[in-house]
Design a protein around this nucleic acid. Sequence first.
DNA 1: CTGAAAGCGCTTACAG
DNA 2: CTGAAAGCGCTTACAG
Lengths: 334, 334
Amino acid sequence: MKQTLSKQARLDDVARLAGVSSATVSRFFNNPDVVAAATAERIRTAVDQIGYVPNLLAGGLATNRSRLVAALVPHLTNSIFAETVEAMVGELSAEGYTVMLGVTGLIDQTLDAQIQNALARRADTIIITGIVTDDEVRNRLKRSNATIIETWGLPEYPIDVAIGFSHEDVGVEIARFINTRGYQRPHLLSARSKRAMIRRDSLCREWSKFSNNEPTETLLDIPVHFGRARGAFAEIRRLDPMPDIVVCGSDSLAQGIIVEAKSVGLRVPDDLAVIGFGNSMIAGEMRPTITSVEIDGARIARVTAEVMKKRATGQSQDENKIDIGFRIVARESA
Amino acid sequence: MKQTLSKQARLDDVARLAGVSSATVSRFFNNPDVVAAATAERIRTAVDQIGYVPNLLAGGLATNRSRLVAALVPHLTNSIFAETVEAMVGELSAEGYTVMLGVTGLIDQTLDAQIQNALARRADTIIITGIVTDDEVRNRLKRSNATIIETWGLPEYPIDVAIGFSHEDVGVEIARFINTRGYQRPHLLSARSKRAMIRRDSLCREWSKFSNNEPTETLLDIPVHFGRARGAFAEIRRLDPMPDIVVCGSDSLAQGIIVEAKSVGLRVPDDLAVIGFGNSMIAGEMRPTITSVEIDGARIARVTAEVMKKRATGQSQDENKIDIGFRIVARESA
DNA sequence: CTGAAAGCGCTTACAG
DNA sequence: CTGAAAGCGCTTACAG
């Protein structure tokens, strides 16, 4: 059991001990070049002696810069976003930022509430997964002083800056890939999400140039995970004629389809081909290895950090839509 | 491009507009019962009109309560901790807390640095995955006013409160399970982590009561993921006699072993049995379904929230070691 | 290179 | 039920 009465050391305590003013101690932390070497040494000693830890709440209030960045994601588990969040935390912690995490896909945790919270914490930057469509929320974000980064999509008019790729183009490229490889009857399997629907629509549009059979499809409720592939596979198998390739909304689903297919003796890709999405680690490691669409989540994190740095140093940010692209990685499964 | 000059509304602005003092507006937010209905109504209108968002930096400074909780995990991807973090964010956001995320397993991101950051942000609660052994760090945490929660383990002397289970007991129970099921030659496959080593040691100790053949083992460097099972499986296959059961440090590894085994025509569990760890969703969904050790990550989150509530309301916390237990879930793979 | 002092936007004990 | 005022722990323009 801890005693909770102890008073924490303040800047003043350090100052007194080191025989300087608190302003100088503050400079020691934030602008060290400007303090004399001998003074710095005395301050360092004092800090160590009393175990001083700066209060960033007070610092943030005084400077109007919280060094806090809010990362808002739909989900963390079974999700393509976990990698990006991890990369983001790594990238931004190194720059001295603290990442506050908001999960918007849980019950009672609306995006709206999470944004309100980020605003109240005076986050310097708010990173949103997806595109904000609600005008009320858009305006609230615009009025704030925070840098707003919409990720994973490229809206026509970003609130501030968008870092992502064209889901439409992904649909087109997958359609072409399928056609080039000679598959005839694609089946689309994905979550009922806005972004997935955009990919679906453009895939179908492009596919209609090659073939008259419209792709069949299975839509899943969110959150989607590995096991949901089981029911979907049963459905696919009952189709007549059976599809010859399943285009999945995630690598996890792709993996599930492969496991199911193999368990009934189908060969992948000969009897049924599979394409994933996200190119997670598992795509390259599954047997067979999974053909997937690579989205460089770490790059989203990196570019985010760059944009933030530009903002912090007052440089102008010329592009407000940054396309990080994507790439179909062909492997054994399709 | 946003204009960044706009001044944000303050409590005072609301007060002026509503014709009250800022103290009353503050009460409206923090202690609504105490303000008159008519006054509250005027304040509400004013808040909406100017789009006021409270500044929690200032609030936290004034109250010495940040409503910030730091969650420190080794990894997020391919990790058993993602579920707990997600549950934690859900649980704690609902209580009005903000979760700041620290990832300690990345390069340059030591636990030490993350703790320092949490302390500097004046987090009310710091949740650490694992046990802190460094005395220097332990003392720093003890001196702070934050509630410190060590999770996943049950140290003899928690810094403050520990919520977890006995890794030793897990080892013992697995050994007994293996023996009961009649397996003869267990192989241990896990990450080179402190906690895994504790499980390993106690498993071996218990196993020695049943058999003279010591378990063989493969230790992997962190971070461990699905694909690492490939090399491990090759190693296992070369053993003579070959093990008849592989005890894995994660479900993801278990899955990997199953995929590898099947790809060379081995039957699971008849030719090679597999046990996972964590009982993630995938354990129940894989084919064959995976026998695993269930750790209730969501419960860790729930209990954490309870402890925090007790602390916040000044109730005494009688237990400082809370055992959430574990359970072997027997399925098809072993 | 350093200090005195005002200010960041809240909260709350005190008084009424 | 409400207000005036002090205080939370920093930073920084200004002056030296």
